[in-house]
Design a protein around this nucleic acid. Sequence first.
DNA 1: CCCAGAGTTGGGCAACCGTCCCAGACGCTT
DNA 2: AAGCGTCTGGGACGGTTGCCCAACTCTGGG
Lengths: 202, 202
Amino acid sequence: MARVPAIERRRQLVEAAFQVIGEEGFAAATTRRICAEAGAPVAAFHYCFASKEELFVELTEATVAALVDAQADGVLVRGSVRESLRATLAEYWATVEADPNREVVLTGLTQFALHEPSLAGVARRQYEAYHRTAALTLESVGSGCGVTWTLPVEQLARMLVVVTDGVVIAWLVDRDGDAARAALDAFADALAAFAVSAVSHR
Amino acid sequence: MARVPAIERRRQLVEAAFQVIGEEGFAAATTRRICAEAGAPVAAFHYCFASKEELFVELTEATVAALVDAQADGVLVRGSVRESLRATLAEYWATVEADPNREVVLTGLTQFALHEPSLAGVARRQYEAYHRTAALTLESVGSGCGVTWTLPVEQLARMLVVVTDGVVIAWLVDRDGDAARAALDAFADALAAFAVSAVSHR
DNA sequence: CCCAGAGTTGGGCAACCGTCCCAGACGCTT
DNA sequence: AAGCGTCTGGGACGGTTGCCCAACTCTGGG
């Protein structure tokens, strides 16, 4: 076998775990299955990771980072808040349908972390990252369209995450892409109603 | 040990599975753990259920039915659509905080069913029940307040499910009840914007 | 040229998994 | 009292799990 630095092996195993969970679900993500996917012997796993949980932590952080990065480039400012939110959500949705596994992995890890004390902090940081990213998105749209929000940005950010999370899960179950896009459009309109033009009057 | 008819045993095992999943997560729901929780010998499991999946199917249907029943009584009509939706969502939220396990079990089962071909239909029916119940809620509120909706009820129903699902998951992670209630209130206002008073003009 | 340290590897461990068998105990009919 | 179907419950099955060990091979620096 090609000799590879441990850091690189870790990356390979994380990628393999991503594939396995995405295609066969969380329950199938055993150390043996992951190693087989990575083309590595089982012993390589515990040479690179102290435990399976350590792999999950790294997988969560890498996947969340990928989502956050994708979203940083995905904020689209248009002529109005309504159009901006519609475009931004449509852009986000394109990334979901392009790689559903990312969402499968993310929701699976969240569910798993809920009852694993050693991973509870990971799930919390995961959602903090969601909320921070959503807040950034709203602030970009707000300043880009010259509006302010009638509710605290943190609250609207949580609502944005609620919407994306909820739409994704329903879609993972019934794969009704038209319904998902329609819901996102309607939510874009609804959230746009919480914006007012920021005419400085002094 | 007390002799118990098989039907009753099934009920006990389903209830025990509910408790175990709620408190220790889906991964802990082994046949042995479930039987221990129910105070039954392991062999009783396969005397009552052909397989573990059969138990999961029954657990899903029973839990969804409990949710649907609770929601049937939880539609509150107030003076305006906005207030009605706020009250109804607040009522729903009270049941969530009163028994978080119901949501833990439901989200866990959904996640599990996503990659278990034999359970895929169960998850789909689960969400169909959600959507049907939400549509009923919206129609009750609509006729109760004398309004019609500016979007198809099916679409608004999906949006309602998205909201409750999303709020629940975020809350399961960070347990921020205030944020959850604030988000639900804001969504109630947003959804109320899709109603128009149904003055018959002929 | 050698050797210390990094990386690879097969085999094996104890624990646990879902499922099954079967001898026995119970309670209802006749 | 006898018989029979329903339920009990211990024990065991083959298989899988996460993890570990000891022996190996490679590679770069002195």
